[in-house]
Simulated scan of single mutants.
Amino acid sequence: MKKIILFIALCLVNLRLYSQYKEFHPGEIWKDNKGIHINAHGGGVLYHHGTYYWYGENKSENSNNALVGVMCYSSQDLYNWKNEGVALEVSDSKESPIVRGCIIERPKVIFNERSRKFVMYFHLELLDKGYAAANVGIAIADSPTGKFTFLKNSRVNAGKYPLDMTKEQKESTSTVADFKDWWTPEWRKAVEDGLFVRRDFMGGQMSRDMTLFVDDDNKAYHIYSSEDNLTLQIAELTDDYLNYTGRYVRVAPGGHNEAPSVFKKEGTYFMITSGCTGWDPNAARLFTSDSIFGPWKQHSNPCNGDGADLTFNSQSTYILPVAGKKDAFIFMADRWKPKKPSDGRYVWLPIKFENGLPVLGWLDQWGLNVFN
């Protein structure tokens, strides 16, 4: 009888832990069902069959490198999250591109209706190579919680030029070696005209900070920071989401954007990004377009109020559509803590709209009823 009572008491404690939140508290410790701060940084969320799945980087107390892999958490209400374990494990084999100690960042997962497979993309840097590889990694699973199987890694669209690059730009003989000094007006103009696209043409375009977006017609797109983080690119995926069709475009060439997050509302595509200041926050940027392939128009910082100039001390990672609520979107961002990476915090804020454009304001706490 004592064992039964103890078991019931433990179940009640676990239930209390798992249902402890009734609203969001941006920037604060966010505990999972085990009472541990959620470890899913630079993440994204998949909604599948009534459940949300949050994927993100597992960070250790002392390192930003991938020592564990990609985590998965599940939730029905978006407030309370169950730790589903490691969705994609790093390898112990030094022959593997995802060997323990490599860099895995910003994992995103989408579901392919045709193959019934869950497909994960992530920014991958090879062990002990710094950020030189600038690869995309791809993994696949039969279940949203994994285990995901690593398939391959590469740069993007080798041997292909962007759809929006002119004949003159493609045939230019200007090379990186022509510019002794960077950041000059002449160098910037060369970058805008495809200097780094031509440099990386044969080996493929660089892919760092990234997200995935599935459109209304189930066409999927990989959006990533490329050209030494100077230009965003949007690349169309094949129907199985495992390869590229070769169709891609450049967004804000030379604009120095990273951390892209994309959503669609009433036929308009919105993209919120950040500037490039390492682990330090900066002002968010907003772009809109009537087509995923552009042209994209830049607008002013979508953040308002105190802390707006630093995106409330955070950096964008994903825009989450709330299931069952029309035009309800959550801005997901990270507060990086490079000296103690596992303590990084999450800033989730509701997106409001003014004059047809998204607006972000700080809230100490809030609930999904703000969308009603």
Rank of each mutant, 00 (worst) to 15 (best):
D327Y: 11
N33K: 14
N282T: 15
I110Y: 06
F24T: 07
H25Y: 15
T238A: 02
T231K: 00
K352W: 04
N33E: 13
G194I: 02
K264C: 03
P162E: 05
F111G: 02
T149Y: 08
D228V: 05
D32G: 11
N301E: 03
G267T: 13
F353H: 07
T238M: 04
C72H: 06
N58Y: 14
K117N: 08
G246F: 03
K339G: 02
N369F: 05
Y79A: 08
A158S: 04
Y241W: 04
G56I: 01
P107V: 01
K180H: 07
S274Y: 04
R250I: 10
R16A: 15
K2W: 10
D178E: 12
Y47E: 10
Y161D: 03
I351G: 04
R198C: 09
F331I: 07
R106M: 02
N355C: 11
T288Q: 12
V262P: 10
Q205C: 04
L88Y: 10
M71E: 10
L286M: 04
V13F: 13
D200W: 09
A133R: 01
E236P: 14
K160C: 03
S289W: 04
L163D: 00
K352H: 14
M210T: 08
C303L: 14
M206K: 11
Q315S: 03
F122A: 02
R208S: 05
R335E: 07
A333N: 08
S115W: 00
N62L: 13
D280R: 09
L363W: 01
K31H: 14
F24H: 14
H37K: 15
N135P: 09
I4W: 09
T184W: 12
G305S: 12
N313P: 02
A133G: 00
D343V: 10
N64T: 07
L67A: 08
E113D: 14
P253Q: 08
K31Q: 15
K2M: 09
K108D: 01
E84Q: 01
S75R: 13
G305V: 15
D217Q: 05
R116D: 11
F201Q: 00
R335N: 11
N112S: 02
T311P: 12
P341V: 05
G56F: 06
A328E: 13
F371L: 09
N304D: 10
N14P: 11
Y346S: 13
T166F: 02
A141M: 04
I319M: 15
F331Q: 03
A323K: 15
S75D: 10
T145H: 05
Y244S: 03
S172F: 07
R155H: 00
D334N: 03
V99P: 00
T231G: 02
S300A: 00
E89Y: 07
D77T: 12
P253R: 09
K340W: 06
L15Q: 14
